[in-house]
């Protein structure tokens, strides 16, 4: 089931003024794997996500996704190609219900325009029903179906994280990029998250995971890349990464061990 590369990043560079957030980062993610991206604070992980999802324009390098070159700086196109993401500091549509949040995620795979909306013809009605059904499924899938009608901002922290994942899944992604999904979660919540991510993978979706929770990353990921000061210093299976002296050095005294 693993094999061809789904994503190939070649020599990605991004700087902000003098800060080199990413320098020559190359990595490849295989179809069907869970790929971890770790590194100390400020290493450039989120920046890599932003480049990947078209939010930032890279200053160098290119991205090949599912065999095609990704056009930079058009987030909605990235979503259309099949890259979905969550945000490190949760970004939900606070005044929409959980259900509606997920329904927005279906936007990119549906078509009804103004005329369809106004006429409410049978095609639009069918599409709308399908959107709703899929959104309900996804809320069940991430286990927050009982909160469907609550405003997103009224959800608990853990549920908001789950909702964000459901919304991302609604775009039918090939690659799901999660930015620190376990941040702020307690032990049981994290355990639930692990099960969820494993489930997502077994449904055939490739996962790219930024995470500080070492136990989670090492237990979950097939391969891990380590960023430090914007450079990739290591990429391998968890057991090897854990012992890499450069990685231990980067984490100052090796909190990884």
């Amino acid at each position: 089931m693993m094999g061809a590369n789904l994503l190939e990043a070649r020599n990605i560079a991004k700087h902000f003024g003098g800060v080199k957030a990413l320098t020559d980062v190359s990595l490849s993610i295989r179809k069907g794997e869970i790929y971890g991206l770790i590194g100390p604070n400020g290493a450039g992980k989120t920046t890599f996500f932003n480049v990947l999802t078209g939010l930032y324009h890279p200053d160098g390098g290119e991205l090949i996704f599912a065999g095609d070159k990704l056009k930079a700086s058009a987030p909605h196109l990235a979503a259309k190609c099949g890259i979905a993401r969550t945000f490190q500091n949760i970004r939900l549509f606070g005044n929409m219900s959980a259900m509606e949040n997920v329904m927005v995620g279906r936007h990119v795979r549906t078509h009804a325009g103004v005329i369809g909306a106004v006429l409410h013809d049978s095609r639009t009605r069918r599409e709308e029903a399908a959107i709703r059904r899929r959104a309900e499924e996804l809320l069940h899938y991430v286990n927050i179906a009982d909160r469907a009608d609550d405003l997103a901002r009224h959800l608990s922290y853990g549920d908001q994280r789950r909702l964000e994942i459901a919304r991302a899944l609604a775009t039918d992604p090939k690659l799901l990029a999660l930015d620190e999904p376990a941040a702020g979660m307690n032990g049981t919540e994290t355990e639930g998250l692990r099960t969820l991510i494993e489930g997502i993978r077994s449904d055939g979706i490739t996962v790219l995971l930024i995470e500080h929770d070492v136990k989670l990353v090492m237990g979950l990921c097939d391969r891990v890349a380590v960023l430090d000061y914007g450079e990739k210093i290591c990429e391998d299976v968890p057991s090897v990464v854990q012992k890499d002296p450069k990685v231990i050095e980067a984490y100052l005294g090796g909190s990884l061990a």
């Binding site: 979503a79 549509f93 005044n95 990119v108 369809g116 709308e128 609604a170």
Partner: peptide, 22 residues
């Protein structure tokens, strides 16, 4: 409708709306 939801999504968080493919 799909369009109306997209409008509100943009109002609520434009970046997230983009990431949803809008």
């Amino acid at each position: 409708s799909r369009i109306g939801r997209a409008w509100v999504a943009i109002r609520e968080d434009e970046v997230a709306a983009k990431a949803c493919g809008i």
